[in-house]
Design a protein around this nucleic acid. Structure first.
Lengths: 217, 217, 217, 217
DNA sequence: TCGTAAGCGAGACGGTACGTCCTGTCTTCGC
DNA sequence: GCGAAGACAGGACGTACCGTCTCGCTTACGA
């Protein structure tokens, strides 16, 4: 759900073959998978997800993590960016009726997020935000080249809606995806428990517009 | 910018007078002011803002903080809730033209947020999100009775727009405020630097609606 | 076996009662006992004796150790200084014949030190030297006010020998103890395995003198 | 100052020529010289002298060190053994009067060791002891075939004193050297700062004997 | 002359300890 | 009994080394 144009992260080191032992791709993967496992399976919230735990889970030295990632936030973001961890949103159905499709998408997603006790459903979402919010300059730079939401299925559905003429010609479907996800996610985080009805109303505002239609014509 | 219906925070201890020395209102204020000073003036990011630092800055014992607040998130949230710290958003002008007003609001706000180097402008915003995202159950409960954005001037402007007939009758202005703030804030956090133009386009989607108006009828 | 005139270690903090929670004597003792247990019972060599292990063994936070001791060397030295750990030297018998007494002392001590496999017998001795040699300025200062060997029974025996007229009037029994212990310990460390016979010859040199007796007469 | 009968260190690999690239003598020397430079010139204490630092200083791969030496202690000991690093003891003069010669030797040596601030003078001595005390079995075995002190000029002077009849016939001059160096070195390490006067008195005990000469007959 | 086995510099690897920092609790005092 | 001070147990941090490993390259023997 996060799109990165390219991921240098490390200064690229110029030419092809460098001296010394090359980076272990196995370790790289192990770290990503360990992070995913801890977030997804063990549902550790971001603050309880420690670099030491990731290293142990991955069977990797702590230094190997710090050698390639700036901090915990960078690890978690990469795991989300590259799809090792997936946010718990459902696919958006495509019946041709965008409004109805989004309504059922919201309903399904909320149902999925709330079936667990307490707020476990939003653990990954919270971790994503925590990583974005806490990561230093490195994360900010990464986000420059990244559209956090455009990898989600919602964005795809909106693009197809755009070509199908369901959306106004003059709106960017990516922009709509950002607006929808931003509003929806923020609502989920700033309200105790996600609530399908209010989310749908929120959605409708964005679909139909808030302004009295006479004016913009 | 955060609205709380009531602020018990601590179980209220039933009746009026308890035994022993009553809570020192001076200490309470000192903590709030210290938090505000550290966030606003020193621009410490949330992770560098420690309880010990707040206590020291406030000239208060650490226990005094833990006696009245659950954790750091609760302190920060209360400081934001009760207005000791203010988010760096401008007031929304009221010329009668909501779209133009919001455009200039966005422009002014972005200008304010970006005048500092790097991402210092969003420090408080990030702290708010960090507190929301990291806080435990107590913060979740607090948020149940709270509308994070309805205290902002934007919400007021939208309410007046609603009564003035600028908004559609069937939309809740509070809902619109949530949608707008959610989308705007999320956009600010998930792209490296806030960018006035894209924020305005985002805003217009929400004002005019994303759907092709004729088609769904 | 190490004598300290006084052990301020920490700047004394002036007057009697200070504010805040006072140092926990229980923790202090726990650290000393844990150190003794690890050195004496588990026979960990100095390099494998970590601060973290001591803290864990003592049921104490690591910071509590670093609050009161400069480093590992200081902890180990205090444990030796204050008698929580004892070097594996036997008592010196007192038959009135100093030479014979020292011979049997050496024999007994070497037997004790060598009964274990490998070099476990000298673990504590090695730890003592490691602490002395590795400790920084703080340890050097501590040693200024300390006579490492004068607490051993050997020193006492030599003092009684001095008053009994067994030693020359003009020699300081403490000095003799230092010389004997220095030579013996160094021999033990710089030779693979302590060897009773060569130690005894070493001892006799010091008792009888190395010079051809005519000369100094 | 350390004498080794032979220095196989590595199992000798039987016959003369092995296949493959032979050991680079240049690297060997570079390591020894780097070690000497770091100990002698930069006066790094043993704990701050790391294998990585030595390798870097020598322009050598770390593995090249571990291929030929067991550990840091072995490297340092070989550097001391083979004279790349020298202990800061002066030569013993030979005026025919051993006692006076040793007195002036002590005085000169202490002067040399104390001219630097703090305890820098004994850095190499401390490193020697640290290596001996910390080194594992390999170092113990090495020490079996080695007399740490017999390479020093003191040993030579004592041997000549022995043939000149200055020493008692029945004492082994090597033994005396061990006793003297052991006592002197230990004194230097266990008191804060070496002190010429007490060292001389220590020395005199060993020259003249501690026992009352008439009594034991 | 060439293959190949070993050594080489470089540097990443799994591990582990370090010393610092912070959390949330506790234990003293003085008010 | 609150509040400031500050020590406590616990535990994560990010750094530094250790000793091993894996690269591509070099060296020099033996076929």
């Amino acid at each position: 759900m996060i799109c990165v144009t390219e991921t240098p992260a490390v200064p690229a080191k110029s030419t092809a073959s460098r001296r010394g032992r090359p980076r272990s791709e196995a370790s790289h993967q192990a770290v990503m998978e360990a992070t995913a496992r801890l977030l997804d399976v063990e549902e550790l919230p971001y603050e309880e997800l420690t670099v030491e735990r990731i290293a142990a889970e991955a069977g990797v030295g702590k230094q190997t993590i710090y050698r390639w990632w700036e901090n915990k936030a960078a690890v978690v973001l990469e795991a989300l960016v590259t799809g090792y961890v997936k946010l718990d949103f459902h696919q958006v159905p495509d019946t041709g009726d965008l409004r109805a499709d989004l309504d059922s998408w919201v309903e399904q997603s909320v149902k999925g997020l709330c079936k667990q006790d307490e707020d476990e459903g939003t653990v990954i979402l919270r971790s994503l935000m925590a990583a974005i919010v806490s990561g230093g300059e490195a994360i900010q730079e990464l986000l420059q080249n990244t559209d956090v939401w455009s990898g989600m299925h919602l964005a795809e559905r909106l693009r197809s809606a755009h070509t199908a003429g369901e959306l106004r010609d003059d709106v960017d479907p990516g922009m709509v995806a950002s607006a929808v996800m931003g509003a929806v996610v923020m609502q989920m985080l700033t309200v105790g428990k996600p609530d399908g009805e209010s989310l749908k109303r929120l959605l409708h505002v964005m679909l139909d517009g808030a302004l009295e239609p006479r004016r913009p014509a």
